[in-house]
Amino acid sequence: EETVVIALYDYQTNDPQELALRRNEEYCLLDSSEIHWWRVQDRNGHEGYVPSSYLVEKS
């Protein structure tokens, strides 16, 4: 079962390993094994790492 997370803030990045976030957008959580950086996928299928503190699990 996939976990959906919501971005609390915008996040901009130039790092190809990371993914930009848009506030209030939903993302699919792929990997939360790292404490500070979670791997997520956006609705267009793009994947990357984002700061975990910018996300909240959708209830």
Results as ranks from 00 to 15, higher is better:
V4F: 14
H36V: 07
D31L: 02
V40E: 00
Y27M: 00
A7F: 01
V50H: 01
G48F: 03
Q12S: 13
V5K: 02
G48P: 00
A20K: 15
T3K: 15
E34D: 13
G45F: 05
I35Y: 08
V50R: 01
H36N: 10
Y11N: 00
Y54K: 06
R23V: 09
E26Q: 07
G45L: 05
R43A: 15
Y54F: 04
R43Q: 11
R43H: 11
P16T: 12
L19A: 03
H36Y: 10
S32I: 03
H36W: 10
K58V: 11
N24H: 06
S53W: 07
Y11S: 04
N14P: 07
Y27W: 00
H46E: 13
A7I: 00
E18P: 07
V56E: 12
S52V: 06
D10L: 00
V40I: 07
L55D: 02
G48Q: 02
D42F: 01
S52L: 01
N44W: 05
V50D: 02
D15S: 15
P51Y: 01
V50T: 04
K58N: 07
E1S: 04
E26H: 06
E2L: 10
E1L: 14
P16M: 09
V4C: 08
Y27R: 01
C28Y: 13
S33I: 02
Q41N: 09
E57R: 11
V56N: 09
L55R: 02
E25L: 05
L55G: 00
Y49W: 14
L30N: 05
Q17M: 10
P16N: 07
L21S: 01
S59D: 13
L30P: 01
S59W: 13
H46F: 07
E26K: 05
W38S: 09
T13F: 02
V56H: 06
W38K: 04
L19P: 03
C28F: 14
Y27C: 02
E2H: 06
L29D: 02
E57I: 10
R39P: 00
V4R: 06
A7S: 07
L55E: 01
S59L: 05
R22L: 12
E47Y: 06
C28D: 12
V4M: 09
E57K: 10
L55S: 01
T3N: 13
E34L: 13
V56C: 06
I35W: 06
I35A: 13
N24Y: 03
L29K: 05
E26P: 05
E2N: 06
L29W: 00
L19N: 01
E47C: 11
I35H: 14
L30I: 13
P51L: 03
Q17N: 13
R23F: 07
L19W: 03
D31P: 02
V56S: 11
E26C: 06
E34P: 09
V4G: 05
E57T: 08
N14G: 09
Y27L: 04
L8I: 15
S52D: 02
P16A: 13
Y54S: 05
Q41F: 04
L55N: 02
L55W: 01
E26F: 05
D42C: 05
L29T: 02
V5W: 10
S33P: 03
T13L: 04
T13G: 13
S33F: 04
E2Q: 09
V40F: 00
Y9C: 09
N24G: 14
S59Q: 06
E1H: 01
D31I: 01
V56A: 14
A20M: 10
Q12P: 12
Q17D: 09
R39Y: 10
D15G: 15
W38P: 03
W38E: 01
Y27G: 00
W37T: 15
C28I: 15
R43P: 08
R23H: 11
E25Y: 07
L8T: 09
T13H: 07
Q12I: 11
S59G: 15
V4E: 06
V56W: 06
P16C: 14
T13D: 07
L30W: 01
A7G: 04
I6P: 03
W37P: 01
I6F: 05
V40G: 00
Y9M: 14
S52N: 07
E25R: 07
S59C: 14
H36T: 13
E47Q: 14
P51R: 04
S32A: 11
Q17R: 15
L8V: 08
D31C: 06
T3Q: 11
E18L: 06
E25F: 06
L29H: 02
S52P: 10
E1C: 04
V5D: 02
E25W: 06
E18N: 11
L21K: 00
E18W: 04
H36A: 12
H46L: 11
W37K: 15
G45C: 05
Q41P: 01
D10K: 02
S52I: 02
L21I: 10
H36G: 13
S59K: 14
R43N: 12
Y11C: 02
T3P: 10
V40M: 02
Y11Q: 01
Q17E: 14
P16Q: 10
Y54D: 02
R43F: 06
Y11A: 02
I6S: 04
N24K: 09
R23T: 11
S53T: 12
Q41G: 11
